[in-house]
Structures are given as structure tokens and as C-alpha cells.
Amino acid sequence: MSEAPAIRFTNVTKQYASRALSHVGAKGLVTRFPEFVKRAKHPVFVALRDVSFEIKRGECFAVIGLNGAGKSTTLALIARVMRPTLGTIETRGHICPLLELGAGFHPDLTGRENILLNGVLLGMTKREVRQKSGMILDFAGLGAFIDEPLRTYSAGMTARLGFSVAVHLDPDILLIDEILAVGDVTFQAKCIDRIGEFRRRGVTFVIVSHDTQMVRTSCDRAMLLYGGSVHMNDEANKVADEYLRLVGAAAVVPQVPGGSRQTEPKPAAEVATLQA
């Protein structure tokens, strides 16, 4: 109920050391030592540049942008799997990242065993998972499949399992990286119900998505990242409009001016996602 924001980024910059460095390997360390040292000293990729924003408690906030704009880096920084190079990040409450399909699951374990493993990896003790396992099983609604190994599941069923664990974690902040599109209609309806319930309870959502329709209907505000900087941070509808304008422009002119990125965004793929 406090006025303090759930998440606050203040002048956050994130640079990555060259990924190529780790692939030079021990061999390179010996045979090309000067190059190795040079690479280690100079980070070459700026993923986020002086980014500041606030997300209020209970808000549903979308992060949109072209590929390589810094969306996933933003989520990783919120989840505290990385440290910012410069600037500060403050978060309030228990953060739960909704894992990508299958991350944290093992194909040879049954659905039931995976629930325990996944719940623990996401921050619950075994006791807490067991207390909730009834609700989780109920929500996943996988019937007899729950005692079959995960490799027999379809992609949709795996996603249902993952979502079911995540929504029972009692998160204060839920991070979602483009996975809500899976599952059949009944399950999606359940998810939307659950999200509505979370919103009433004041859970904060941070969603990375290319689905502008979803951003318009579900999110209060959105932030458009462009080349690692905040291009726009406003009401969701306005930002979605601007994003579509930007994608249209990028589709015509593939080169992004002023970007310090090594990998260029792939506008064609972005447009395909939008149409899908």
C-alpha cells in the first residue's frame, strides 16, 4: 500500500564483455595473450544506456522494442541475475521470473517431480511446494499425464506446468518473457483469470512482448526501448502505436542509425511475429 515504486531503475547502464572472449578459450589465452587482455579490458556491447524508469506496485508494465533493444537484459537485471555496470536498481518484494519453455525442467522426470524441482529453483522450500502441490496440480489440469515423464508432453502441456508452478509462488513481481501465447483456449482463460486475481492483490507485472494487441488490452503502461535507450515511456496504447510506427520504418530501412550494437535487429522477423 506504500507509495514507493515496486521497481526503480536510476541511470542504469549495462555493458557486456565480448561474448567472443569466452570462446577464445584457454587455447587463446596462451597463444593470443595480448588480444585476450585487450578484449577482456574493453567491453564492446552496450545493452542498456542510461536507462531510468519506475514501475508502480500493482502495475502491469510492458517492455517492448526490436530484437536486441535490451528487453531481456532489463528483465535479467530486475531478476538480479546480473549486476548493472552503472546506476542503481531498487526492487520491493519477492520476484518470480516465469521461465521459458522447459528451462528448469528435466525431460526424464515426471510432471509431479518437475513441479518440486522447479518450485525449489524458483525460490520455494520443499515444504512450501508440497503445501501447494494440490493447487498446482489442479491448476495445471494434466490428468494422468502428471505421473508421466515430461518428454512425453506437448509444448503446450509443458508450458501449462511451468505457468502453474510460477503462479503459485505468491510473487510480488512477476516477470514474463513472451510465453503466454501457449496453451489451449481453456488454459489461457484460466491464466487470464489468475492474472486478474493477481492484479487485484497488487502483484506487479513486467511483460516483454511483441504482441501489441496484448500490450494494449492487458498493460497499463509500456516502455519502448530502442538501441538500449528509453525511446518512450507512456500509456500502453500510445507506446504500442509508436512501436508499430518504428517497426514499419525499420522494415523499410533495416539499418538502425546510432546503434552501437554488433548484431543488427531483424525487422523482418519482428513483422512476422506481429502478423502471427
Binding site: L117, T125, R127
Partner: peptide, 26 residues
């Protein structure tokens, strides 16, 4: 106490995953 319990649970959950996988496959 909760943090210690959590760490122990993490290790044992990962351990039982490894053991189950090893013995389940064959």
C-alpha cells in the same frame, strides 16, 4: 532458518533429480 532450509532443499532437490535420472533411464 528459512534461508538455510531453502539452501538444503535446493541441494537435495537437485541431488534427487540427478539420482532419479540416473536410475530411471535404465
Amino acid at each position: 532458518a528459512r534461508s538455510l532450509e531453502y539452501r538444503i532443499d535446493l541441494v537435495t532437490a537437485l541431488l534427487s533429480k540427478e539420482l532419479r535420472v540416473r536410475y530411471k533411464r535404465t
